[in-house]
Design a protein around this nucleic acid. Structure first.
Lengths: 191, 191, 191, 191
DNA sequence: ATCTAATCGAGACGGTACGTCTGGTCTTCAA
DNA sequence: TTGAAGACCAGACGTACCGTCTCGATTAGAT
């Protein structure tokens, strides 16, 4: 008997209120305390309206995160790999320090804790990885990058330090952090 | 009225049963599902006995993890930095794939979710970082490592890719993963 | 802004479907489970169509009940009070055992639970009481009934046992139940 | 896995708080609005503590009602049936007007709405009926009451008017109501 | 026969309470 | 006094209906 809801009837206003409330709560009180009830209360919305359109709070936040990724963190191609990497990773570093960082942190917790949520988060992460690998593949063709390295590993070499520092160490990062990382790492990746 | 329990009357048998049960559950059903109640039931112990001696399930697992770290992952110093790094990081990679990996993953989730748990986990992590930095500092003195780099960042460059691949990407790693990473990265770190 | 709907445009088909569905559900699954949503679904009607024309489910059932009362349970006047009372109360006893009994039971529940519904139900009940008192008043004039008794009380003496047995005791009643009651009670009411 | 709770461990304090809260709410806001959540909040108790020991709110109120019946409404036997009936029914009439009346009204609603609740309520009601029938049986032996009448019916003749007036008519009753009823009815019941 | 205004079926909406589940604390009793 | 057992308060979970609202799509009455 459980019908599928009709998306054309959906209230755009509620959708935005819910996503905003979820993001705000995630920033203010953290992912764990961001309950569906709290989101509903903050958004001035019935719980059912959330359950009708999203399977979990992770899915709500994922919608925000997807939007951000699509609009804010594209990958440039100036022809100079190092410049492009620095631009993109610095943007990511900035994002980590912003509100969106709290959301992304929450989603990573969800992915680590819950296999279902992990799917969506990994999809998002893979999209970013694929984009990065695309730029790196170009660089391999132009001879800016060694042709014999596994691109997945290169991506991990570039983003791994940033994620390690942000998620695990938790130390405050200097603004030029990624510049230093690339300085140390880049020579080893050149042909 | 008795605030603190008397450690001399503590049951060593219960202590071990609790830690073992927590570790087993973490491996079998994951950190999130490893509730205090489940641990108590598996260990054949009252919940209060757990709460009396540990503030949270993270603390129980932390006790296991600390013990493992003390006994198993020393940092070698053969005089050849790259050999030592490869040995140690490969051991860590092996650990991630073992039961202890499930526990460590759980603790990292705890650290990300809960500031109190984060303290204990960070302390453990910092101990490893300090040890690594010690070996790297030696290497700087012997001229195997550039003297102008921030050692925290070097640690992140070395371990970041591994953590990224293990925690976030979730892809199956080739046995020689760390060898490839060090191959790609080491030239950039040499003086 | 249109407050009141226009009765001339009302769909008679929907009206009947709603009342029928409500009655059927009341019989089949009981008054409590007869929700507005269930009525709407059974009648193949939008919820709003119910709310537009009735203030509550009690009102829907009340419409059915009123119709039944008007058409089925008139009060006879043969000149012999006891014969008339027996005829009417036996008809009521029969009604209680029929589908309409389930509806009337539901309305009494509504009246007991909700003051607004109580108004309508009491009005209906009072109409029956007034009719009965009319017949009793005639009997007082003809000397069949003591003139010094409160007619409300007499009505309660006559119908009270039936309602008590039907609603509260719930025991299966012999067909001649009201005959026995009147036998026991009538002597006390004669002048 | 659902264990049955251990009654010896039960908190008497919570039990009383819950029953009191339920009764108070029933009096103040009516049976329908007396939700489990409201009872729990008023009693300063977790909802689970209610669900652990009672299957429904009706059961909570039933516990109160049973206690009242046991302690307050015994049936006298002075040797004069009419005096005894008047004493007992007047006490019941008084009860209907008191706080306990609101509770009893709620329980009757529950019994009418829900078959499970009906069991408990009918049991309580039957206990009262049995007691009354006992007194009436004695009266039959002493020749105060016709021997050929069904005692269940006699009980209904006596209490039916009162319940009808209280529950259904809802009119304010004169203090001497039961005296009048018995006056009108008693002659018909005498041998 | 056409237009137009309303009622219609449908169902999304903000809410309340449900009955269940789990978390961390408090209480009881045996050893 | 400890430890095992489990009842306690608290509150989030996901569901069912509430009564209101907004949609096209009939549909009946006036043009």
């Amino acid at each position: 008997m459980s019908r599928r809801p009709d998306p054309t009837r959906r209230s755009e206003q509620s959708r935005q209120a819910i996503v905003s409330a979820a993001v705000d709560l995630c920033v203010e009180i953290g992912y764990a305390a961001t309950t569906i009830e709290a989101i509903a209360a903050r958004a001035g919305v019935g719980k059912q309206t959330i359950y009708r359109w999203w399977p979990s709070k992770a899915a709500v936040l994922l919608e925000h995160m997807t939007r951000v990724r699509e609009t804010q963190i594209g990958f440039p191609d100036t022809g100079d790999l190092r410049v492009d990497l620095l631009a993109q990773t610095s943007a990511v570093q900035g994002l980590f320090a912003s509100d969106t960082g709290a959301v992304w942190r929450g989603l990573l917790i969800a992915a680590l804790s819950d296999d279902v949520a992990a799917d969506g988060v990994r999809t998002l992460l893979q999209a970013a990885v694929v984009e990065a690998k695309g730029r790196l593949a170009t660089a391999q063709k132009t001879g800016e990058l060694r042709a014999d390295v596994d691109l997945d590993m290169v991506v991990e070499i570039i983003y791994g330090p940033l994620y390690h520092a942000w998620l695990l160490t938790g130390r405050p990062l200097p603004e030029a952090y990624m510049e230093e990382v690339l300085s140390s790492v880049f020579d080893g990746l050149r042909p």
